[in-house]
Amino acid sequence: MAAAAAAGAGPEMVRGQVFDVGPRYTNLSYIGEGAYGMVCSAYDNVNKVRVAIKKISPFEHQTYCQRTLREIKILLRFRHENIIGINDIIRAPTIEQMKDVYIVQDLMETDLYKLLKTQHLSNDHICYFLYQILRGLKYIHSANVLHRDLKPSNLLLNTTCDLKICDFGLARVADPDHDHTGFLTEYVATRWYRAPEIMLNSKGYTKSIDIWSVGCILAEMLSNRPIFPGKHYLDQLNHILGILGSPSQEDLNCIINLKARNYLLSLPHKNKVPWNRLFPNADSKALDLLDKMLTFNPHKRIEVEQALAHPYLEQYYDPSDEPIAEAPFKFDMELDDLPKEKLKELIFEETARFQPGYRS
């Protein structure tokens, strides 16, 4: 834990890192770190609560700039109880001085990944967590956004079992017609939660990839272990087919990539493993919904509104309290091709509203 900075004593240090967030945020305490930044909790002297502050230093890398800009653009436009918001952003007053960006968010005690390492969940908890994931996802999908990296560590939890989806750095506007060349190379989302079509096709992607990830998360809540822990690309596919069985001819016809289709045709026939054999203690309604989410063919996979209306979630289902976005989200430009200098300018502009004396 960093010592509390005395008023006016300059930035606090946390594990050798400068955290320049005073005077409003003090009493910093280390939480963890990701690929390009550290997260601390801090005391907000204005709202009198502890908050989470993520320090991001992305400006050396085009990919990190892209992810940072995506996350900020999306989260500043989203407003939903099951999606983490941005409360404040701290950065230098000029673009030349801006080396880091500090993002202030609600402090959540833990995440689903940490929880599943230590606790076996009751059916009631599984049901409530799944409902909140789908409630947040309904809003995301209504904005025409794909999260693309749903996994237990991106689901934040607090002691009252509130759940918030975080990390929109890989999110995209849904565009089933656009052929994202190089899709697989830039697709760094965790393999275990990846839909089979991501490994088999490169053309376009749809909201059904997020539903697949939610199915993987439900299976993990039922058993405290990942359902498809593939060691590499082909191993991942083999794990999936080992449980779902061989795809039907109709399902194979959806695979545009001939090499991928021929690979699947070359494999020995596998039978589907019954879900109640894998999860003998699970609620039968939970397994019915799991089956509809972990469907090989993305066109037959359940959609988020149908999933919310499934009998497993009937005690929570309330369409009048499951809000959607006001308007579909649009990125003005494809960020993939922009140089990091341009992305830095866009991050600077996007964060201006939090600067003292800002006038829109």
Rank of each mutant, 00 (worst) to 15 (best):
L265S: 04
A195Q: 07
I240L: 09
M221S: 05
F19S: 14
S57F: 11
G136D: 01
P196S: 12
R79Y: 07
A174C: 06
M199S: 07
Q306C: 03
L267G: 03
Y187C: 11
K73N: 15
K292F: 07
R277F: 06
A143N: 06
I227W: 07
N224H: 09
K164F: 08
I84F: 15
G136S: 04
H120Q: 14
S41K: 07
E334F: 00
S122Q: 09
L157Y: 12
G169K: 04
S360H: 13
T110K: 11
M221A: 11
Y25T: 01
K203W: 11
T118Y: 01
L258A: 09
D251M: 05
L150S: 11
M333L: 15
R50G: 11
M98T: 03
Y317A: 07
I211T: 13
D175C: 06
G169P: 02
L107T: 07
Q17R: 03
E349D: 15
T63C: 13
G10K: 12
E33L: 00
C127V: 11
D332G: 10
Y64E: 05
R91Q: 04
R277I: 15
S284G: 06
C40K: 03
I95S: 07
A352T: 13
F228K: 00
R172T: 06
P356M: 01
I256T: 03
M108A: 09
K300F: 10
S57M: 10
A327V: 07
P226A: 07
P280C: 13
Q132E: 10
Q119K: 09
V18M: 08
L163T: 08
I227Y: 03
I198H: 04
M221H: 08
I217L: 12
D336C: 02
P58Q: 03
E81S: 10
A6M: 12
I209G: 09
L76S: 01
P274G: 03
V51D: 15
G85M: 07
Y25M: 08
S142D: 03
I95Y: 05
H239I: 11
F348H: 07
K207G: 12
C40A: 00
C40H: 00
L338T: 09
V145K: 03
T118L: 10
M13I: 15
Y102D: 12
E349G: 05
C127Y: 13
I243R: 03
Y128P: 02
E186K: 14
P229M: 04
V46I: 12
S29D: 02
Y317G: 02
N154Q: 12
D291G: 05
Y233C: 07
Y316K: 07
Q119F: 10
R135Y: 01
R359I: 01
F296A: 05
V49W: 09
F78T: 05
I211Q: 12
G182T: 12
G136R: 13
N154F: 07
A286G: 01
I90F: 14
R172Y: 04
W212T: 09
Y358V: 09
M108T: 05
T185S: 15
D88G: 03
L200G: 06
L130W: 01
I95N: 15
G85C: 15
K270A: 04
E197F: 10
R194M: 11
K342T: 09
E250F: 00
K48H: 13
T190F: 05
I302R: 10
Y43F: 13
T160Y: 07
G242M: 07
H80D: 05
I126K: 10
A52D: 14
Y36L: 08
H269L: 15
L265C: 07
L170S: 02
R191P: 12
N253S: 08
H141K: 11
P311M: 03
R172F: 02
K259P: 04
H141N: 15
R135G: 02
N144K: 13
K330A: 01
G85H: 03
E250R: 03
I86C: 02
S57A: 00
E345W: 00
W212N: 09
A4Q: 13
D235E: 15
L343I: 08
H232W: 01
Y358H: 12
H141D: 08
V14Y: 09
Q306R: 08
G215V: 15
A219T: 14
F183S: 13
L290I: 07
L335V: 05
I227G: 03
S213R: 15
G37P: 08
R79N: 02
P58E: 02
Q236T: 08
A42E: 10
F329G: 01
G242N: 02
N297P: 01
D318I: 04
I240M: 08
T159C: 14
K203Q: 13
R67W: 12
D44F: 09
K138I: 15
E322W: 04
L69W: 01
A195K: 03
T181D: 08
E350Q: 05
D177Y: 14
D283A: 11
I209Y: 11
E349F: 00
G16N: 03
L308E: 02
K55E: 12
G37D: 08
R24Q: 07
K330Q: 06
D321I: 05
L289W: 06
K272E: 09
C161L: 05
A195F: 05
M13T: 11
S223I: 05
L170E: 09
H239A: 11
R148F: 11
Y102E: 08
I217Q: 10
S29H: 02
L115C: 04
P323H: 14
F129P: 01
A171N: 02
K114P: 12
G8V: 15
P319F: 08
V145N: 01
T118M: 08
K292Y: 06
K207T: 13
G357E: 13
L107S: 10
A260T: 12
L289N: 04
K270P: 05
A9N: 00
D106G: 00
H299Q: 13
A52L: 06
S213W: 03
I324C: 06
C65V: 08
P311T: 14
L289A: 06
N297T: 15
I89G: 02
N27P: 09
W192L: 15
A195S: 14
R77S: 01
F279N: 01
I72P: 00
C254D: 08
R135F: 01
P11I: 04
G230P: 00
P229Y: 00
L264M: 15
Q249F: 04
L200Y: 11
G32A: 04
K259Y: 05
S246V: 01
A219R: 13
A189S: 14
G37T: 11
E220V: 13
P226Q: 06
V14A: 12
N82T: 11
L343T: 07
N144C: 09
K55H: 09
N158Y: 14
D20Y: 15
L134G: 11
N238K: 13
V14C: 11
G242W: 00
T68Q: 03
A189W: 08
L184M: 15
E303P: 00
R70F: 02
V51G: 14
T159P: 11
I198T: 00
S360W: 10
E71L: 02
L156N: 05
R191C: 07
Q66K: 15
Y30V: 00
T160L: 10
T159N: 14
F348I: 14
Q355F: 00
A143L: 11
L338F: 02
D149V: 15
E109Q: 11
A4R: 13
N87V: 01
R135T: 02
L107C: 06
V188E: 08
G204Y: 09
I84C: 04
L308V: 02
A52I: 11
L258C: 04
A52Q: 04
Y358T: 11
A2Y: 04
Y193K: 11
D291W: 05
H239F: 10
K114V: 13
N87L: 03
F183E: 10
K342I: 15
V14Q: 08
G230T: 00
Q355H: 12
S57H: 00
F129W: 06
L343S: 12
P274C: 07
R67M: 15
L200P: 07
W192Y: 13
D100V: 14
D318P: 00
Q97P: 11
D100Y: 15
V173A: 12
I198Q: 05
N271F: 02
I89N: 13
L222C: 08
D318T: 01
V145Q: 03
G22Y: 13
P23K: 00
A52W: 07
Y193F: 15
H299R: 10
W275A: 07
I217F: 15
S208K: 07
Y187S: 11
A3R: 14
G10S: 11
D291M: 10
T190D: 07
Y25S: 04
H269Y: 09
V101L: 15
L155M: 14
Q17N: 07
Y205V: 13
I240G: 02
E345Y: 00
K55V: 11
F228W: 02
A35T: 15
Y233T: 13
N297L: 12
P93I: 00
D235L: 13
C166L: 07
A195D: 15
T94E: 11
A327Q: 09
L343V: 01
F129N: 03
W275I: 10
E12H: 10
H232A: 06
K54W: 03
N253P: 06
V39R: 03
P311D: 04
Q97I: 02
H80S: 05
C161F: 14
F296E: 03
S142C: 09
L241A: 08
P11S: 13
R70N: 02
R77M: 04
A171Y: 03
